[in-house]
């Protein structure tokens, strides 16, 4: 059985009203946020920030990313890890449709009969991933359909950040998805890895998850992790700082271990 450790914010308050949801207005959309475009008729329609939304900002009402709170809906074992019966990696590999089936979808609606009676663009969507209790939501888009896509994509990022896979350090070799996000100077990176995958690529979250698995296994030490990846400590630090949510996840973990945050 594969074991995964994850820390969640179960038991944290759930926003009851739309007013509690942080709303990204165009004026405060971060410049660096990757955008997701799709063709609509003859116009390319911008549908808002999708992937690496600054997690701390958007999800702050659910508490800190790596709070000491552990899930209670799965069995705790002696070292405090959670046995969800499925590896965190699998959550990222399954299709949107399969992932959606593991989720409970709620929308923020006001009371009333709805349907033709109503004209209100309240299209906020909240997804709760039942196996882990992780919650992702989206509100800023104009259609419910798009908000669902945004929430699902955010859920993938959160799963990568929060669900840990156990690894054996002694026999560790980095998986392909991790090699792909490493800079070319890594000595372990063969020519078959292709160009480095950056945070804007949907495949980045899978590599990010593997990278966090390694960092957790080496107790947050960047130099130890760098050795396992054939990189200099400086090069790995730069990679860790290149994505906002990755940086925050690493730093929260380091702080919890009494280490200095990376800057």
């Amino acid at each position: 059985m594969v074991r995964s450790i994850f820390k969640s914010f179960l038991n944290l308050p759930i926003p009851k009203a739309i007013a509690n949801i942080p709303i990204l207005t165009p004026s405060c959309r971060p410049h660096s946020t990757p955008k997701f475009y799709l063709p609509v008729g003859k116009k390319i329609q911008h549908i808002g920030p999708l992937f690496s939304v600054p997690v701390g900002e958007r999800f702050q009402e659910f508490g800190s990313l790596f709070s000491a709170k552990y899930s209670t809906n799965a069995s705790n074992n002696s070292n405090g890890s959670i046995d969800t019966g499925i590896s965190g990696r699998e959550y990222l590999l399954i299709s949107d449709e399969e992932l959606m089936k593991q989720c409970e979808l709620t929308t923020f609606k006001a009371s009333g009969p709805g349907g033709q009676h109503r004209n209100k663009r309240e299209s906020a969507v909240r997804l709760k991933h039942n196996p882990t209790g992780i919650i992702a939501q989206a509100v800023e888009d104009r259609s419910q359909h798009m908000n669902r896509a945004s929430a699902l994509s955010r859920l993938r990022a959160l799963l990568a950040l929060k669900v840990r896979n156990n690894i054996e350090l002694d026999t560790y070799t980095p998986p392909q998805e991790l090699l792909q996000i490493l800079p070319a100077k890594s000595t372990l990176r063969g020519s078959n890895c292709g160009p480095q995958i950056g945070p804007n690529n949907p495949k980045f979250s899978l590599g990010m998850q593997a990278l966090l698995d390694l960092l957790f296994a080496v107790e947050g030490s960047v130099s130890d992790a760098a050795k396992k990846l054939g990189l200099s400590t400086g090069a790995l630090s730069r990679l860790l700082l290149s994505d906002n949510s990755l940086r925050m996840a690493v730093n929260e973990f380091r702080i919890s271990k009494g280490m200095k945050p990376l800057k």
Partner: peptide, 14 residues
Amino acid sequence: FQYIVGCEHWRDLV
């Protein structure tokens, strides 16, 4: 609002 701007975002359509 939809009559003001002349469109509605519905599913992945405008």
